[in-house]
């Protein structure tokens, strides 16, 4: 499945400078793409636009060359996307397994199936032993891995990860990056925002966000 941004401009306030400026880009299907750029350049904003969380001020998001319409948004979010948010959002009081199942349940998958997929994904990121802990009791790095497991378990078409290895040590970063890049299900396009050149280098493609525009093969910061 291909995803395209066409003439996307986004500004948070009418009078402020645009974060994304007349940006057009085609994200190649089934590839892993690293998005790099200085802090505040708009990487999180870009992901939010791609993932249909934020409607750009101008321009369109196209999936399989079809312009996404407002009323399809919630459904597409469930069916096609999975997230690893920079803010590691979890349901704190709930168990690790419950959190990992969430996207699948939202998609209407049966309880048993969802639980099984969640278990597998948790093992992949090395959280198998913590499956029944409450999410709020995890460390920062464990939380990030939980979010990755949750995203992997749902076998999305587009996996959007915002700084997924920000709090991990080298060894865990490698393990998690591998799980994300190589362990992702077939047919999953991975778009990962990262400051880590090591992570970016393992992706098929690196794009840099600068001055509201995307350029292929930019330097990592």
């Amino acid at each position: 499945m291909s995803l395209e941004l066409r003439n996307v401009t986004h500004r948070y306030r009418r009078e402020s400078a645009p974060v994304l400026r007349d940006l057009s880009f085609v994200f190649p299907a089934d590839r892993s793409i690293a998005v790099v750029g200085p802090s505040g350049s708009g990487k999180t904003t870009l992901l939010a636009v791609i993932g249909l969380l934020t409607r750009p001020t101008e321009g369109d998001v196209l999936i399989d060359s079809e312009v996404v319409k407002e009323r399809e948004v919630a459904d597409l979010r469930t069916r096609l996307f999975a997230w690893v948010f920079q803010t590691v959002n979890v349901l704190g009081a709930r168990t690790v397994t419950d959190n990992a199942m969430l996207v699948l349940l939202a998609r209407g998958v049966a309880q048993v199936e969802a639980r099984e997929a969640a278990r597998d994904a948790l093992v992949t990121v090395g959280l198998g032993a913590l499956a029944s802990r409450t999410a709020s009791s995890l460390s920062g790095g464990e939380l990030q891995r939980l979010c990755i497991a949750s995203a992997l378990a749902s076998r999305p078409r587009f996996l959007l990860a915002d700084e997924p290895t920000g709090q991990l040590d080298r060894a865990t970063t490698d393990r998690v990056t591998q799980a994300l890049i190589e362990g992702r299900p077939r047919g999953t396009t991975l778009i990962v925002v990262t400051h880590d050149p090591h992570v970016a280098s393992q992706c098929d493609l690196t794009v840099a966000l600068q001055d509201g525009q995307l350029a292929i093969g930019g330097e990592t910061t």
Partner: peptide, 14 residues
């Protein structure tokens, strides 16, 4: 709000 935002982000209709 972050918790409810998560439900919405994964595509739960309002």
């Amino acid at each position: 709000r972050s918790e409810l935002g998560l439900y919405l982000a994964i595509g739960t209709p309002r």
